[in-house]
Design a protein around this nucleic acid. Structure first.
Length: 484
RNA sequence: GGCCCCAUCGUCUAGUGGUUAGGACGCCAGGUUCUCAUCCUGGCAACCAGAGUUCGAUUCUCUGUGGGGUCACCA
């Protein structure tokens, strides 16, 4: 093999529900690894004990599962670089931080949080950039030893060099350059002994032989910290690709909870199909050569190249997602649709009707949770609005129409209560009486469903059944005469 | 505010030193039709601005403007 092994990773922290942005990053890392026959690694970054949410790790793994993006290596499946949970690797980070101290690349810092806060306040007031003032950087070895002996709490910081160009090549944006003067003396080990993200990510990516770091664009500005660390360790850099973030559907700001749905779980709960959501994530900010928009994971893997990702932030266009979801729903077999619909069928829905009802709503579903609204009139009591009923005709006329319709339908046995028979009878009546199609059919629709927008009339009546249809027609007849 | 990233229809994109700047979603109109939806047809709609390079810039360069990100013992 001429090109070296591709190993990608995704490194979520178990602090809550997974964001669609994270899923998008997962998708890209997965696809790239698969395309190059490499490995896709899942690593759990749980170095902030205060933010950890129980069960979040399991949730992440289950989502990867639902979307068919399983990790080749990770906490559950294991792998040659286990453990894959950072809280289980504390000793590794300690050792590496220690190594940096011995090499003179890092130092102990005993400053209290209080002092740092005051320092920042001062800097803010002076309009100077908020940075650590390096007070502890030049402590003598004796001073350090004595503070350590007294068990004073400390952190370990990186000695960031002055006036140094820090640059790297981003697969999506080309060369990006920073000045090391912009970089703070980063904390590597926190006072609780846990590593910060910056130390852990560099150490683990190196140890786990990650070849490509594909992550969100919001990490660009901390990349120089990571580069400086790689240099301090004298390790080779991975290839970076910073993927544009998603903006809220209104185009304002990074996609966030405040502006609507953001978690993968809540999209699923609304009845977006995983395949549709994934497809949407594929074509958001990226296009195939021939601009096909409906594609499977395998087709995506075949074509995906991070270099082709758009460089600009993209708006999360819900309308387009909805369009895709509708397509995926319509492409489902009825059997599959029924099974996917299960969680969205209300408990009072007479489930034996599902097979008959399905064709009436299949092309009307945008998300699966639309099921309830689309079908409620079938099995729940309806309210008939007199105004809708009499919209295009007089009360007397409508009463006459209902009366005749009822007697016509009464002659139809329950066995013959079928779409075709209903259609024939009702059309005959309408034609014989020369009633306006629009007015008559809409009036009947309102009488039977209580709504002005429904699936086709005869099919709907067939599903509702002989008894209920007639009772609703009678109910409508009463409504016609009701004085308001 | 400092630093960094970005800029083609409302949105997602294709594309080129000379094109009628293409497609998709959305929107509008028409067709099918008992309404809605599906489906089909058509339409509206974009190269952020200024300067430079050039015979010629949407395309290359610079500046401006606009948008976004980031500035923690959070990731």
């Amino acid at each position: 093999m001429s090109d070296s092994v591709v190993r990608t990773r995704v490194a979520p922290s178990p602090t809550g529900e997974m964001h669609v942005g994270s899923l998008s990053i997962v998708l890209k890392n997965y696809a790239y690894a698969k395309r190059h026959h490499g490995q896709f690694v899942l690593r759990i970054e749980d170095t902030d004990q205060t933010r950890e949410v129980p069960g979040a790790q399991e949730q992440i793994i289950s989502i990867l599962d639902k979307f068919h993006l399983p990790a080749d290596e990770g906490p559950i499946v294991g792998g040659p670089f286990a453990p894959y949970v950072q809280s289980q690797r504390l000793e590794i980070y300690r050792l590496h931080a220690q190594q940096l101290i011995e090499k003179g690349q890092a130092y102990y810092c005993f400053c209290s949080k209080d002092r740092l806060e005051k320092l920042r306040d001062q800097q803010r007031a002076d309009h100077s950039p908020p940075k650590y003032d390096r007070l502890c950087r030049n402590l003598s070895p004796q001073e350090v030893k004595s503070k350590l002996d007294k068990e004073q709490p400390y952190v370990i910081r990186l000695k960031v060099p002055d006036h140094q160009k820090v640059s790297f090549t981003d697969l999506i944006r080309g060369q990006i350059e920073f000045d090391s003067d912009q970089v703070d003396d980063q904390v590597l080990i926190k006072s609780d002994g846990f590593p910060t993200y910056h130390l852990a990510v560099v150490v683990d990516d190196h140890l786990m032989q990650i070849s490509h770091v594909m992550r969100g664009e919001e990490w660009i500005s901390s990349t120089p910290k990571h580069i400086l660390l790689y240099q301090a360790f004298n390790w080779p850099l991975p290839v970076y690709a910073h993927i544009p973030i998603y903006l809220n559907p209104n185009g304002k700001g990074k996609m966030s909870k405040r502006h609507g749905t953001v978690s993968v779980g809540s999209f699923l709960d609304q009845g977006y199909l995983p395949e549709a959501l994934l497809n949407f994530l594929m074509i958001l900010g990226w296009a195939t050569n021939d601009e096909r928009e409906i594609l499977t994971l395998d087709e995506y893997i075949l074509e995906f190249n991070p270099q082709d990702i758009s460089q600009k932030t993209v708006v999360f266009d819900l309308k387009k997602l909805q369009w895709l979801n509708g397509i995926y729903i319509r492409n489902l077999t009825n059997k599959d649709l029924i099974s996917k619909l299960k969680p969205f069928v209300p408990t009072d829905f007479p489930s034996q009707f599902l097979p008959q009802v399905l064709p009436l709503i299949k092309e009307r579903l945008v998300v699966l949770s639309d099921f309830e609204d689309l079908t409620a009139f079938i099995y729940r009591p309806i309210e008939i609005n007199q105004k809708d009923l009499l919209k295009k005709s007089s009360a007397n006329q409508v009463a006459e129409q209902l009366d005749q319709l009822i007697s016509t339908l009464s002659s139809l046995s329950a066995q013959n209560w079928l779409t075709l028979q209903l259609e024939e009878k009702i059309r005959n009546l309408q034609e014989k009486q020369n009633w306006s199609k629009g007015q008559f059919f809409m009036m009947v629709r309102v009488a039977i469903t209580g709504q002005t927008q429904t699936p086709p009339l005869f099919e709907t009546m067939a599903v509702i059944g002989h008894d209920l249809t007639l009772s609703r027609l009678n109910q409508a007849l009463l409504t016609t005469k009701k004085v308001t």
